[in-house]
Design a protein around this nucleic acid. Structure first.
Lengths: 116, 116
DNA sequence: TCATCATATGCTCATATCGGCATGCGTCAA
DNA sequence: TTGACGCATGCCGATATGAGCATATGATGA
């Protein structure tokens, strides 16, 4: 406990979607529920890997699963993505409203003028 | 090289913002440029840590820096957040348009698996 | 009960990080 | 030139993962 090292990630949506495969899974699930095997096939990865990614997604609440006979269907529950969308949205004015401001910024850089 | 292990993360925006501190830094920078020392103080962390996080943010292009005399001012360049905002936006209909659909879904769950 | 299909887990290896510290480097002012 | 100041890095320790494989668990139907 002396060294805290990493910050325990897999229980937070931001980290869950930091994994490319997991983002792919979420995208695939927009088309509807699917069993692990099919997802694995569509992603081109083996079943254990797919299951593990799904587990992470389930733990953060981005997917839900339900048994369907011998299989287990995974479905999307995108509500957890809303906070991410809103957080990034908080920066919208910085990328839309100010292309000119960015230009000005670049000008400042060139002039090397101190300010604050 | 037989084992690929992890997928090289810190060169992608999704991973950059998966770190809480880094998100805090971006938020702070919305108020304007700041030198590392000040950011560190505002975050309550030491300077080296702040510098490292800023480095990651710089590498993915979310912040820019410019020398200002003895100091180095870091500024926000949120353009890189736009893709994240748009990606999550692609799931918007799944969290807004269908609260009722979700309810129905939950009902199904309860009926098939009445416990746990 | 048993064979089989569908999934979830357990383990090991190789890495990517993050936190802490100590230290190197560059800039400015006296 | 020298010393203080502001930052960036290097290194080490601890740990979270992800890939790969092998195997345990569950559920189904004969």
């Amino acid at each position: 406990m002396t060294h805290m090292a990493r910050a325990a990630t897999t229980s937070d949506v931001f980290n869950a979607i930091a994994e490319p495969r997991r983002r792919e899974i979420l995208v695939l699930l927009r088309a509807g529920e699917r069993p692990v095997t099919e997802l694995a096939r569509e992603l081109g990865i083996d079943q254990p890997r797919a299951s593990k990614h799904l587990r992470v997604l389930r733990e953060v609440g981005l997917v839900r699963d339900r048994k369907a006979g011998k299989r287990r269907l995974y479905g999307l529950d995108a509500r957890g993505l809303r906070p991410v969308h809103e957080w990034t949205g908080g920066f919208e004015r910085f990328w839309s409203e100010s292309l000119d401001r960015l230009d000005a910024y670049v000008q400042d850089l060139k002039q090397e003028k101190p300010e604050e």
